[in-house]
Nucleic acid binder design. Structure first.
Length: 934
RNA sequence: GCGGGCGUGGCGGAAUUGGCAGACGCGCAGGAUUUAGGUUCCUGUUCCGAGAGGAGUGAGGGUUCGAUUCCCUCCGCCCGCACCA
């Protein structure tokens, strides 16, 4: 495909895609040769204290990519260009900038790609990384390449394993609400200042003590319900299971099974993960998603006694306890069998079977119609002694709260529906102003503040109170005082399932003794290398075979699994843990390794962490100065990384409390996608437009917009655009499409707009026929200087706020002005090029060089606006009469309000409009407007 | 249902604390260059109206000298969570 602007009669030195390609390659080589973007550290292997100096620092971070075989998609250059522009701007404003790029290369996609191609994942990963590095280079991203890491590199995952052991060897102190080293727990248990959970510490055997400690660890092996995905052949985390019970990746059914797996005690950090969101410069949307995922809910635990035993419920509305007229348990609740009477046994069993069968997929499709079965059993409502029937229903979930609820149909919509469906009593316990106490007339439950009624016993009365908050407080106090319950907080967040039965991941630095107890390997044994094998395919199963069992690929490697080791008590036989860590492990801390990527003694030198990520004052959590990436990581990666960072902070390894101070979520790239009559997507690039409709291979197709990508067959490769127009044009187009956080449709025909802009900049400085510099001699006129300085001030302002689209618009305005002048005055050329440099660095370097500068523009100071040119001698005021602009007047910039008013009232048009009537009021807003009320 | 966000020309989008609506770009129209097409350049381009003028930021209302911006009601769209007790 030829570039649209190069033909036989094109001037030899016109800025075409072909010329851009030549220029860009030249500067890539030069940047590499000169190490232009190498950034000094205060300490460690990359230390250069003199180069660090006293400059302010900026740590600018992108979410690092998977090195997939397809290479980068257009969303990558979108975010990467934004951070690159900001990084370059920061360098030009005197900052020491840390900016690099790594690869999140472990995990399912890399492994699946390897399985498809039959090559070892290490081979394909290296190839893919090399390919993506070339793509990144082509985009002109100003990365410090010395700092690049891959999570699959043993020098990197050595420290991932080390951090795992830090977490394994830590416990959460509920009093101090922080992680501490496990030996501090041992000291407290030895001293008797803290009690053991499983018995008397002093009388425990070594094995019992080991088991006791395992109960406290932040990383622990647990035999608990996990998400088993036979189609993937591995267990997956809650966060990786979709709402309809399928795997996020692959969309296979997921089954709850009890299995022995590694867990991380992220729940211990639930409150801090919520509270510290307040310290972060993140959007409300992302904060809300994290809060919602953690799902903190304040309420009360209430005990109902039954012949089958105590039934404990969680409620957020303890104030409505007098209205609890029945109970509902989840079908899987352990007390169901004991509660069920013989007469109801068949019905209960049938319901439980049906509930289990439809568990994963169909529950949503069946809508919200309430189903359920009476167990035949009853329990006692503790506030009024009433016997209430106990039902089971699938709208009560075993996985939340206690798996049992007290049903208050008058005050809860679901309970109301259930009561209506099955004819259960509904007793009003509040008196809404517009309702009768006869609930048979109610259309729905009442939720809100209204005076309580029917809510008293001998020692408690809520009657007459009209505040839910107050009623809750009184009820909680009563429950606690009488031993029927207490105030409680529950969370939706569950501990993080941390092991996977796959090959392509970090091995656990854990071995098991003959009793099956886990032991940490010593730091000196790290890294535990992922053993080489050609048997890396996971064992997958029929996706619906819930009873299949996971098989770790590493388990097949007997030579690796079995080992003899002396852990201080003599040479013994052990078995290695054959699981690998999940995809998310490597991305939980990669930003820290960028700080000190080649340090063999520490995962990061504390001085470097303090310098790049340390808190910047009281109340500041520290962390990266900017983190740009897609919103799809709102809960998974961002929550896990925050959790690890907090553990590292608690253990004294990092000074920052949070990893990412400012988070910016880029929008998606959308593109037109086309479907044929069968609803199949057709290759968007082959669709033609004819008379307002769309045609593919002669047949009509319909258009829609969707996320650019393979599935909609509307992807455009960044490389194609670089080839056609050059990387600078692609960068500029991506940035000018709209605000960075908005999703925007890709329109290939629009790309030419920014290309023309670059062409005009080039032409204003370089002669298209000779290639010589052709700037204008003589001093620029005052108006031109005003445009220059206004542009300078505006571009700075826009860049400070990451508003790249409007910054580019300002540069275009400046250049359009110069085009009208007939070229760029020589005295302004440096400033013009310097302002262009962050956006179109290749062209800027080339022009900079042709203008006679011997060094890269990278560290040249960004232009500063001269305030003298930001004001003018005269100001134009719009004059409104009754809110409508009727005239414009021009007055001296320093004219006082009275003069402006007099000038406005004297204006011919205003005199005509007022028609002799005296104005009732005249408002002069200095520098802005005159408003006349007639 | 709950939470977050958004509605501005033919299209993508601009508009400091409320102060000239439509910056910039695409497209379109006309013109220059060109054998022609394309490229490049210039001019114009919110709508109605020949014009004077009028209307206009999803709809309606409010506050204000003045509202795209603030408040209320409604409509529509996007994203996240979803029987969470």
């Amino acid at each position: 495909m030829s570039t649209p602007d190069s033909t036989a009669d094109t001037p030899a030195h016109r800025y075409t895609g072909a010329l851009a390609g030549v220029i860009e390659a030249r500067w890539h080589d030069r940047w590499d040769a000169e190490g232009t973007f190498d950034t000094p550290n205060p300490a460690g292997p990359l230390a250069d204290a003199a180069a660090v100096g006293s400059r302010p620092k900026r740590f600018i971070l992108d979410m690092f990519p998977y090195p997939s075989g397809a290479g980068l998609h257009m969303g990558h250059p979108l975010g990467f260009t934004a951070t690159d522009i900001y990084a370059r701007y920061m360098r030009m404003t005197g900052h020491n900038v840390l900016y690099t790029m790594g690869f999140d290369a472990f995990g399912l996609p890399a492994e699946q790609y390897a399985v498809q191609t039959g090559q070892h994942p290490a081979v394909t990963t290296d190839q893919n990384i090399a390919n993506i590095r070339a793509q990144l280079r082509r985009l002109g991203l100003s990365h410090d390449r010395r700092r690049s890491i891959s999570t699959t590199d043993p020098d990197y995952y050595r420290w991932t394993q080390w951090i795992f052991l830090q977490i394994f060897n830590a416990w959460f102190d509920p009093d101090r609400k922080k992680a501490r080293r496990i030996d501090e727990l041992v000291a407290e248990l030895d001293a008797g200042t803290r009690g053991a959970r499983t018995g008397a510490w002093a009388s425990m055997s070594p094995a019992q003590r080991r088991a006791e400690l395992d109960q406290w660890r932040l990383a622990y092996v647990s035999d608990a319900p996990v998400n088993w995905c036979p189609g993937l052949g591995t267990v997956v985390a809650n966060e990786e299971v979709t709402a309809d019970g399928r795997s996020d990746r692959g969309n296979f059914p997921v089954f709850k099974r009890n299995m022995r797996q590694w867990m991380m005690r992220i729940t211990a950090y639930a409150d801090r993960l919520i509270d510290d969101l307040d310290l972060l410069d993140w959007t409300d949307a992302i904060k809300a998603m994290q809060r919602n995922w953690i799902g903190r809910s304040e309420g009360a635990t209430v005990h109902f006694e039954s012949p089958a035993g105590r039934i404990t419920v969680f409620t957020t509305r303890p104030d409505t306890l007098f209205g609890a007229t029945f109970m509902v348990l989840a079908p899987e609740h352990p007390l169901v069998d004991a509660l069920t009477t013989p007469a109801q046994a068949d019905a209960v069993a049938a319901y439980r079977r049906a509930a289990q069968a439809k568990k994963d997929v169909d529950r949503q499709d069946e809508g919200r119609e309430k189903t359920g079965v009476f167990t035949g059993g009853h329990a006692v409502n503790p506030v009024n002694g009433q016997q209430v029937p106990v039902w089971i229903a699938d709208y009560v979930l075993m996985g939340y709260g206690t798996g049992a609820i007290m049903a208050v149909p008058c005050g809860d919509e679901r309970d109301f529906e259930f009561a209506r469906t099955f004819g259960l009593p509904i007793v009003a316990i509040q008196q809404p102003a517009d309702r009768s106490l006869d609930t048979s007339s109610w259309a729905d439950a009442f939720v809100g503040d209204a005076p309580y009624v029917n809510s008293a016993n001998q020692s408690l009365s809520l009657d007459g109170i009209d505040s839910v908050t107050e009623a809750k407080r009184l009820m909680n106090g009563w429950l606690e005082a009488h031993g029927h319950g207490h105030a409680t907080v529950t969370y939706k967040l569950r501990d993080w399932l941390f092991s996977r039965q796959r090959y392509w991941g970090e091995p656990f630095p854990i071995i098991y003794d003959e009793h099956g107890s886990p032991h940490a390997l010593p730091d000196s044994a790290l890294p535990v290398l992922l053993p080489d094998t050609d048997q890396f395919s996971p064992r997958t199963f029929d996706p619906d075979d819930a009873m299949s069992d996971p098989e770790s690929p590493l388990d097949r490697l007997a030579d690796w699994v079995e080992l003899e080791l002396d852990l201080g008590d003599g040479l013994r036989r052990y078995r290695r843990d054959s699981n690998v860590m999940p995809q998310w492990a490597g991305s939980c801390w990669y930003e820290l390794r960028y700080l000190d990527p080649t340090n063999d003694d520490h995962f990061v030198d504390p001085a470097n962490e303090q310098y790049w990520m340390g808190p910047q004052g009281p109340g500041h959590p520290g962390g990266t100065d900017l983190y740009v990436g897609g919103v799809e990581h709102a809960v998974l990666h961002l929550l896990y990384a925050r959790f690890w960072h907090k553990v590292l902070h608690d253990l004294g390894h990092v000074s920052s409390v949070e990893p990412f101070h400012k988070l910016f979520n880029q929008g998606y790239i959308l593109a037109a996608a086309y479907q044929d009559e069968r609803g199949m997507y057709v290759e968007a690039s082959q669709v033609e437009q004819r008379d307002g409709s769309y045609v593919y291979e002669g047949r009509p197709v319909t258009r829609e917009y969707g996320k650019m990508g393979k599935s909609l067959k509307n992807a455009i490769a960044p490389d194609e655009v670089c080839e056609q127009y050059g990387a600078d044009t692609l960068r500029l187009y991506l940035m000018s499409m709209g605000p960075l956080d908005a999703s925007r449709p890709w329109e290939s025909k629009d790309v030419v707009g920014v290309h023309r802009f670059l062409q005009r900049v080039w032409r204003n400085i370089v002669d298209e026929d000779s290639g010589a510099v052709r700037t204008l001699d003589g001093a620029p006129d005052t108006e031109t200087l005003r445009v220059l300085h206004r542009t300078t001030a505006a571009v700075r302002e826009e860049l400070d706020h990451l508003r790249f689209n409007t910054a580019i618009a300002k540069l275009i305005e400046l250049n359009n002005h110069l085009t009208k002048l007939g070229g760029c005055p020589a005295a302004m050329a440096d400033d013009l090029v310097a302002m262009l440099a962050p956006f179109a660095p290749h062209m800027a370097e080339e022009l900079w060089s042709r203008l006679g500068h011997g060094t890269s523009i990278t560290h040249h100071p960004f232009p500063v606006a001269d305030p003298a040119y930001l004001t003018s001698d005269t100001v134009e005021y719009p004059v409104q009469v009754n809110g409508k602009v009727r005239a414009r007047i021009t007055v001296a910039a320093d004219a006082d309000a009275a003069t402006v008013e007099a000038t406005a009232l004297a204006d011919e048009r205003i005199v005509t409009t007022l028609a002799g009537a005296a104005p009732k009021k005249v408002i002069v807003v200095p520098g802005r407007t005159v408003s006349i009320v007639a």
